[in-house]
């Protein structure tokens, strides 16, 4: 899968005084893939993105794109473009002028830069609002303008810093579909920072889970969700039980836990109806176990808090954790 056009981090470290924000991270971002950097706040994912963009200097290591070390280049010369969390649209410029800003800085004449900007606005379906000021747009529209502004520089890698966090939940799902479609059409690498695992699972060709300044696990969305390597990943991705059996730690998907008469005896603590599933929390001794039971199955034999149940699962579904 490696090609000469990949983006590669080579032993990248970022220190702020005595604290380490990113510790010796090495990773290859395959060309043309949609990558999500996932992790809790303060894990170093945003810093990593900003180092790739060139808005943060790197303390050690290098960043390689297209076979060139870009770690000392200015942001605009790296072949990357960044879409900011708050979109950072220039409030005094119209939508068209915002998109055309980078071309204006390069000294492209007005007609040519407006043509290029209109092309980008068409790509994000914003042509009809080209004369508006950013303050006159909704959050979703601003997001599209920010996207067009980043894409007008024809970047090789688009960096998105929590692009959906300012949108309401319904819009978020629609916009993430648009992002994915756009990435597929353009065929460039998208690196998308998020702390939402559902967002990462829905979008990413590759999910990179970060914690405590290092990459905890990287792989396809399915790999990371189905085979978490560490307890942190299992807990952060959600939908997993981390169980201590005979001194070894295992991850067990909540939807693999069945409620039977036999099996591990436990007491129901909570029942939560979630539509397709019912989430049953049960205590087996000191161990809390979450079971996601298909709705129909649950209501064949409904349980209430305080009821005794047996928990069972196929031993083959236990997934051993390394840490």
């Amino acid at each position: 899968m490696r090609s000469g056009q990949d983006l590669e981090l080579v032993h990248v470290t970022k220190r702020y005084g005595g604290t380490v924000a990113v510790r010796d991270v090495s990773h290859v971002f395959a060309n043309g893939s949609y990558v999500c950097l996932l992790g809790p706040s303060g894990c170093g994912k945003s810093t990593t993105l900003r180092m790739i963009a060139g808005h943060e200097s790197i303390s050690e290591g290098s960043i390689v794109l297209d076979g060139h070390d870009v770690s000392r280049l200015e942001p605009a010369r790296r072949g990357t473009a960044m879409m900011f969390q708050s979109y950072a649209l220039f409030p005094h410029l119209s939508v068209r002028d915002n998109v055309a800003f980078s071309l204006r800085m390069k000294g492209v004449d007005k007609a040519a830069r407006h043509r290029a900007a209109d092309e980008m606005l068409e790509l994000v379906d914003m042509t009809h609002l080209a004369e508006r000021l950013p303050a006159q747009l909704s959050g979703g529209q601003q997001q599209r303008v920010a996207l067009a502004r980043a894409l007008v520089t024809k970047p090789r890698v688009l960096l998105l810093d929590e692009p959906l966090s300012a949108l309401d939940p319904f819009l978020r799902i629609r916009v993430r579909g648009e992002l994915k479609r756009l990435q597929r059409e353009l065929g460039i690498t998208f690196i998308h920072v998020t702390h939402g695992q559902d967002e990462a699972l829905a979008l990413a060709d590759e999910v990179v889970v970060m914690n405590d300044a290092v990459i905890e696990q990287a792989g396809t969305a399915r790999e990371v969700f189905a085979a978490p390597r560490t307890e942190f990943v299992a807990r952060f991705m959600g939908g997993h039980n981390v169980m201590d059996l005979d001194g070894t730690r295992f991850a067990l998907r909540a939807d693999d836990v069945r409620l039977d008469e036999a099996g591990l005896p436990a007491v129901v603590r909570g029942v939560e109806y979630q539509g397709a599933h019912v989430a049953v929390t049960a205590m087996a001794g000191a161990q809390e176990v979450l079971a996601l039971v298909p709705e129909a199955r649950f209501f064949e034999n409904p349980k209430n808090p305080g009821d005794a149940v047996g928990l069972s699962w196929d031993a083959s579904r236990l997934h051993r954790l390394t840490a």
Partner: peptide, 18 residues
């Protein structure tokens, strides 16, 4: 002034003077 605007300008290739 939102500091990210300055970064955005920089990201778009503007020099300090621009």
């Amino acid at each position: 002034i939102d500091r990210s605007l300055v970064e955005a300008a920089y990201d778009n290739g503007a020099s300090g003077w621009q």
